[in-house]
């Protein structure tokens, strides 16, 4: 346990020292929430913009922390041989991954509290289902962390950086995050609801409106939450890409 907590503290401390990590994890979701709720630039489903945007930016925050920050950070640690050096200690893969997951969840808790507070200031009136929010955030974390670690474990550092950012942008625009899946053209709409981003947005919306059914989205997210880590476990390489 001593090694796990020390490693977790290390992950959190080093993340806080990196401005770009804080930018992706906190600043971008908050800015998007404020901007898109005040400026009428996006097509949206019925209802007030904030009712769609608040759960959507929460999903975005989970995606930022668990796929982009974790994926890019781990990718560079692998690229530069930091993971190889840790591999020559008794830390072990389990504790290293455990520390990364705990640090990511800690970041997400801060993100979700901050986004919730900003959304409330902007007039959001949610009907909370805390259990479903926690379930959605955890399943989303597993799914996106799996994807992020799969990319980090297969690609070189700079290629992984580009791939994580490109995937983030694609999911943001076409994955039911910034634009509701119902407003996308038919083939893209079907794809968006099947992606982990769209499913997480739907779960978060259901958890904060208490009017929407969440069964299908929860099932899709659960499948991604299982497939993502399995793909990462099989595909991850610890040594730097040759």
């Amino acid at each position: 346990m001593k090694a796990l907590w020390a490693q977790t503290r290390n992950e959190v401390r080093l993340s806080l020292r990196q401005g770009e990590q804080l930018l992706v994890a906190l600043a971008i979701p908050v800015l998007l929430l404020v901007f898109l709720s005040q400026v009428d630039v996006l097509p949206r489903a019925t209802g007030r913009p904030i009712d769609f945007l608040a759960p959507a930016t929460m999903a975005l925050a989970v995606m930022s922390a668990s796929m982009v920050s974790l994926g890019i950070g781990t990718g560079f640690e692998r690229h530069y041989g930091v993971l190889k050096r840790l591999g020559a200690t008794p830390l072990g893969r389990g504790r290293l991954l455990g520390a990364k997951i705990i640090a990511t969840i800690a970041t997400e808790v801060i993100q979700l509290l901050l986004l919730g507070a900003v959304a409330l200031v902007l007039g959001w009136q949610p009907n909370w289902c805390i259990g479903l929010i926690v379930l959605g955030a955890l399943a989303g974390t597993a799914a996106f962390a799996g994807l992020g670690l799969l990319l980090a474990g297969r690609l070189s550092g700079p290629t992984n950086l580009a791939a994580c950012n490109a995937l983030y942008l694609i999911l943001l625009l076409f994955g039911g995050v910034a634009v509701p899946a119902s407003e996308l053209p038919a083939p893209l709409a079907a794809l968006a609801t099947a992606l982990p981003s769209g499913a997480l947005v739907d779960v978060m919306r259901a958890a904060t409106t208490s009017t929407l059914p969440a069964g299908r989205a929860t099932a899709i997210l659960a499948v991604w939450a299982v497939l993502g880590p399995i793909a990462a476990a099989f595909g991850f390489r610890w040594s730097p890409a040759k």
């Binding site: 290390n10 080093l14 020292r17 530069y80 041989g81 930091v82 050096r85 020559a88 200690t89």
Partner: peptide
């Protein structure tokens, strides 16, 4: 690993 100390040829650490 509990009993082995290693100095790799190229040892990189967290930059910060």
């Amino acid at each position: 690993m509990a009993r082995l100390g290693v100095m790799l040829q190229s040892c990189r650490l967290y930059s910060a």
